[in-house]
Amino acid sequence: MSGLEIPTWDPQTAMLIGAILVEAVLLYVGYGGLERLVGPRLMRVIVGGSKDVQ
């Protein structure tokens, strides 16, 4: 039957997928930290200096 074969993993493919996942996690953490550092200041500038934004 066609299409029911179990795929085999090429080591290079597995390393590429792992590298992409690591890069995604690093970008997620990096942008999250950047948003925490810059976000409040940027919101104060956009809102117009309102003290309500923490």
Score class of each variant (00 low, 15 high):
30 G>F: 15
44 R>C: 05
46 I>Q: 15
12 Q>T: 04
21 L>S: 10
8 T>D: 02
36 R>A: 14
53 V>A: 11
49 G>K: 04
36 R>C: 06
1 M>H: 13
31 Y>A: 04
10 D>M: 08
36 R>D: 02
40 P>D: 08
49 G>D: 03
19 A>M: 02
11 P>Y: 01
4 L>C: 08
31 Y>S: 13
49 G>S: 03
35 E>P: 07
35 E>L: 08
13 T>P: 05
33 G>S: 03
29 V>L: 15
9 W>I: 01
54 Q>C: 02
34 L>P: 13
2 S>T: 01
50 S>H: 02
31 Y>D: 01
34 L>F: 15
27 L>D: 03
30 G>W: 04
5 E>M: 03
11 P>V: 10
49 G>F: 06
33 G>C: 11
14 A>S: 10
25 V>H: 07
22 V>I: 12
24 A>E: 03
18 G>E: 09
23 E>S: 13
42 L>S: 09
48 G>W: 06
9 W>E: 07
32 G>L: 01
7 P>T: 04
8 T>Q: 00
44 R>N: 07
29 V>Y: 15
26 L>S: 10
10 D>K: 14
20 I>Y: 00
48 G>P: 12
32 G>F: 12
7 P>I: 00
3 G>Q: 09
39 G>M: 11
42 L>I: 10
50 S>I: 04
38 V>R: 13
15 M>E: 06
42 L>Y: 13
13 T>K: 05
11 P>W: 03
13 T>L: 06
52 D>S: 15
46 I>K: 05
6 I>F: 06
30 G>N: 00
17 I>L: 02
31 Y>G: 05
3 G>F: 05
40 P>Q: 08
4 L>M: 10
42 L>N: 07
31 Y>W: 10
51 K>D: 14
8 T>F: 12
34 L>S: 14
40 P>E: 02
22 V>Y: 00
54 Q>P: 10
5 E>C: 05
2 S>G: 05
53 V>K: 12
28 Y>A: 15
33 G>A: 00
14 A>C: 06
11 P>I: 00
4 L>Y: 00
41 R>S: 14
20 I>N: 07
